[in-house]
Design a protein around this nucleic acid. Structure first.
Length: 643
RNA sequence: GCCGGAUUAGCUCAGCUGGCCAGAGCACGUGAUUUGUAAUCUCGGGGUCCUCAGUUCGAAUCUGAGAUCCGGCUCCA
C-alpha cells in the first residue's frame, strides 16, 4: 500500500500502481468524469500512469490550466493522426498548446498543400478517431531507439529534436495508428475530445528562425462539450465586432489609402478630435509632473543617427536616406525622437540643480516595418509617440522611474484599462551582440527598473531577450479584442546614449558628470493606444460626442466599475470621441443589435451642454430626465442595487 | 520579407463549373402618410466587378504579374 496525500492534506491509502483515474473514482463519480490530468509531487502526469510510491497529488479538470493543456496537447496529437491519415509521409515538428487551443507545425509531403477547405475533412476525421476512444499509451524509449524509429520514418524534424534530448528521458505516446515523440502528459484516451474546430492555417519557420524552412502551422481548438465550442465561436464573433479597424471605419475615425502608402494612417476629423483630446489630457498630467513640451523636425542629419546608433539599427532595413542637391549631404526620416531631444539637452550647460530635465513631445517617427507586419492602427509605418526623455542624476533614477509609473497609472485608470500586464524586459545574456553598451551599465539599469517596479507594488513578469537594443524596459502590455497582446506604455533606462553624445552636467563638486536618460511613452503610440482603447471600450464604455455636442454612452452592466471614471472623463480629463452625427437628436441612428447592448443612453444636446447636464434614457423605459453626470453616477448605482 | 486566404455599389455580402442590360439588404435621394419615433409604404440615383497583361467568339468568373487587406511566422511602439 502507498500513501496518497490530497491537496487538503488528507491522506488516503491505495495499492501501489494506482492511477490518477482510480483515485478520482475513489473520491467521486463526478470528479472521475471531469478529471483530465494529475500532478504527482508537482509533476503533471497522465491519468492512467501508475503511481508506485507515496506521493502528494492534485487532480486537474477543465477549469485548471493544467487540465486544459493536457486536453489540448492530446488534441494536437489527434489532429496529427488525422493529418497523417490523409497525408502519409507528413513530418511532424512541434505541437504545443497556446492560450486558447493548440497548433502543430508540420512538413507536408512534397507537392501537397493544405487549404482552409481541407480543415473540415480533418476535423471530421478527428471526431471519427475520437469516437474510437483509442487509448493513449505512454512508453519510455532509449535515445538510440527513438533516433532509429524516426530515422526510419525519415522525419528529420523529430531527429533534430531527439538529438538535443538527454538519454533516458525520452517518452513516446501512441494512440491508434499514430505514435509521437512527446513528454506528455496526455488524456487517457481520444474519446474525451468531443468538439473540434481547426481555426486557421499559417506558415511558420522551423524553430522560429527566418533562415529555416517554412512549415505549415495548423491552429485548432477543442472542447469536452459541443456546447462549449458553440459558446466559444459566439464569443469570437462578438469580439470581432469590437475590432478597432471595423469601428474606426464605421465611425470615421481613421482610414488608409494605398495611394498615400501602406501602413500610413490618415486621421479623419473625428479620429483627430479623439486623439487631440487624449494628447491634451496627457499634456496636462505631464505639466503637473514638471515636463516641458518641445518640438523637433521630422528629419535629422544622418550623422546624428550614426552617433546615436540608430543608423545601424534602422538604416539598411528601413526608409532610405534622403539626399539633397548638396553632394554628400544626407538626412533620415526620424525613427526615434531621442537624438533630437538629446541635442536640446546639449544646447546649453546644465547644472546638477537643473536636473532632472524632462523634455516631452508628441513626436512622429517613421519605420519601415515588414509589409506582413502591418495591422490596422496597432502596427504602422508612421506613428506618433507620446515621447519624453528625462535626463537625471544617477541618484534620481529610481524616483523618476517611479513617477513615470505613476503617470502610466493615471492614464490607465482614466481610460478604464485594468487588464494589463507589466513586463520587465531584460537582455538575452546569450546574445550580447544584439545590444549596445557595457555589461556594467546594463546591470545597473536592470536593477533600477526591478527596484522601482517593486517599490511601486507593481506585479510584473520578467522576460529575457525583450529589451530594446540600448537598454532594459518596463512595458505595459494590453490585449486586444481577440486576445492578442500589444505593448502600450514603455519606460526605459539608458546609460548608452548620454555616453555616445557625451552629455554632461556640472555637479555639486564642480566637476563634469554624465546624466542618465529615461525614455518613456505612457500611451506607447497614439495610433496603437487609440486602437486598443477602442477595442476595450466598444460596447462597454465609449463616450461618443457628436459635432452638435450630443453624447451617447453605451453602458453595460459593468457600469458601476466605470461610474467613477465617467465623471472624471467629463469633468477632468475631457476625453471624448466622435461619431457620425446625422440624426441631430441622438447623434446617429443606432442599429438593432447595437441598441440591444445599450441599457442607458446619455444625450447631451446644446441646452444640456450649456447647463452641464445630460438627458438620460433607459432602454425600454424611456426618459429619466436631465441630471448632472454625478447625479447620473448615483442614479446608476441605485439602479444596480435595486437589481 | 515568408506561408495561406481575400479584393463585386458608401457599408455587409450573393453571383455554381466563362454567355441574355451585374444582384440583395442597409445607407442615400424622392413622393405619400402621421399611426408603431429603432417609423412605415412608393419610386429612384449609384458599380473602369482592385490594376495591368493574356487565353477566348465572349471573362466579375480562367492564367500571369503587381497593389492593398486579412490570419499567422519573423520583427516591433
Amino acid at each position: 500500500m502507498i500513501k496518497i496525500t490530497l491537496p487538503d492534506n488528507s491522506i488516503r491509502e491505495f495499492e501501489a500502481g494506482v492511477t490518477g483515474l482510480n483515485i478520482a473514482n475513489a473520491i467521486s463519480n463526478r470528479l472521475a468524469k471531469d478529471v483530465l490530468a494529475i500532478s504527482v509531487n508537482g509533476e503533471v502526469w497522465d491519468l492512467n500512469r501508475p503511481i508506485k510510491s507515496d506521493a502528494s497529488i492534485r487532480l486537474f479538470t477543465w477549469d485548471d490550466r493544467e487540465g486544459k493543456e493536457t486536453f489540448w496537447h492530446s488534441s494536437a496529437h489527434l489532429m496529427a493522426e488525422a493529418i497523417e491519415f490523409f497525408y502519409p509521409g507528413t513530418k511532424f515538428g512541434i505541437g504545443p498548446t497556446i492560450d486558447t487551443g493548440f497548433y502543430y507545425d508540420i512538413d507536408l509531403p512534397e507537392g501537397t498543400q493544405l487549404t482552409d477547405r481541407d480543415l473540415e475533412k480533418i476535423e471530421k476525421k478527428m471526431l471519427e478517431l475520437s469516437r474510437e476512444r483509442n487509448e493513449i499509451v505512454r512508453s519510455e524509449i532509449s535515445k538510440a531507439g527513438a533516433m532509429a524509429m524516426f530515422t526510419n520514418k525519415q522525419d528529420h524534424l523529430k531527429q533534430e529534436l531527439i538529438s538535443e534530448l538527454a538519454d533516458g528521458t525520452i517518452t513516446l505516446y501512441n494512440q491508434g495508428n499514430f505514435t509521437d515523440l512527446c513528454r506528455g502528459p496526455h488524456l487517457p484516451n481520444t474519446g474525451y475530445i468531443k468538439a473540434v474546430k481547426l481555426t486557421s492555417i499559417a506558415g511558420a519557420y522551423w524553430r522560429g528562425s527566418e533562415k529555416n524552412k517554412m512549415l505549415t502551422r495548423v491552429y485548432g481548438v477543442t472542447f469536452p462539450k459541443q456546447k462549449m465550442l458553440e459558446e466559444y465561436l459566439i464569443l469570437m464573433e462578438e469580439a470581432k465586432k469590437r475590432d478597432h479597424r471595423k469601428i474606426g471605419k464605421e465611425m470615421e475615425l481613421f482610414t488608409f489609402s494605398s495611394k498615400v502608402g501602406q501602413g500610413l494612417p490618415l486621421w479623419l476629423p473625428k479620429g483627430t478630435q479623439l486623439r487631440l483630446q487624449l494628447e491634451d489630457f496627457l499634456k496636462k498630467v505631464q505639466k503637473k509632473f514638471g515636463y516641458e513640451q518641445v518640438m523637433t523636425p521630422h528629419i535629422g542629419n544622418t550623422e546624428l543617427y550614426r552617433t546615436s546608433g540608430h543608423l545601424a539599427k534602422y538604416g539598411a532595413d528601413s526608409f532610405q536616406v534622403i539626399k539633397t542637391p548638396e553632394e554628400g549631404e544626407e538626412y533620415m526620416l526620424k525613427p526615434m525622437n531621442c537624438p533630437h531631444h538629446i541635442e536640446i539637452y546639449a544646447s546649453k550647460p546644465r547644472s546638477y540643480k537643473d536636473l532632472p530635465v524632462r523634455l516631452a513631445e508628441f513626436g512622429t517617427v517613421y519605420r519601415y516595418e515588414q509589409s506582413g507586419e502591418l495591422h490596422g492602427l496597432t502596427r504602422v509605418r508612421g506613428f506618433t509617440q507620446d515621447d519624453a526623455h528625462l535626463f537625471c542624476r544617477q541618484d534620481q533614477i529610481k524616483d523618476e522611474f517611479k513617477k513615470v509609473i505613476d503617470i502610466v497609472f493615471i492614464i490607465f485608470n482614466a481610460m478604464g484599462l485594468k487588464d494589463y500586464t507589466a513586463q520587465i524586459s531584460l537582455r538575452d545574456p546569450q546574445k550580447p551582440e544584439k545590444y549596445i553598451g557595457s555589461v556594467e551599465n546594463w546591470e545597473k539599469a536592470e536593477a533600477s527598473i526591478i527596484e522601482a517596479a517593486g517599490e511601486k507594488g507593481l506585479k510584473t513578469v520578467t522576460v529575457l531577450g525583450e529589451a530594446a537594443f540600448y537598454g532594459p524596459k518596463l512595458d505595459f502590455m494590453v490585449k486586444d479584442a481577440l486576445g492578442r497582446s500589444w505593448q502600450l506604455g514603455t519606460i526605459q533606462v539608458d546609460y548608452k546614449l548620454p555616453e555616445r553624445f557625451e552629455l554632461e552636467y556640472i555637479g555639486a563638486d564642480d566637476k563634469r558628470h554624465r546624466p542618465v536618460m529615461i525614455h518613456r511613452a505612457p500611451f506607447g503610440s497614439m495610433e496603437r493606444f487609440v486602437a486598443v482603447l477602442i477595442e476595450h471600450t466598444a460596447g462597454k464604455f465609449p463616450l461618443w460626442l457628436t459635432p452638435d455636442q450630443a453624447v451617447i454612452l453605451p453602458i453595460s452592466e459593468k457600469y458601476n466599475e466605470y461610474a467613477q471614471n465617467v465623471s472624471e472623463f467629463l469633468n477632468n480629463s475631457d476625453i471624448r470621441s466622435l461619431i457620425d452625427g446625422r440624426n441631430e437628436k441622438i447623434g446617429r441612428k443606432i442599429r438593432d443589435n447595437e441598441l440591444k447592448r445599450i441599457p442607458y443612453l446619455l444625450i447631451v444636446g446644446e441646452k444640456e451642454a450649456e447647463a452641464g447636464q445630460v438627458s438620460v434614457r433607459k432602454q425600454g423605459e424611456g426618459d429619466k430626465g436631465t441630471m448632472t453626470i454625478e447625479e447620473f453616477a448615483d442614479f446608476i448605482k441605485n439602479e444596480i442595487k435595486e437589481q
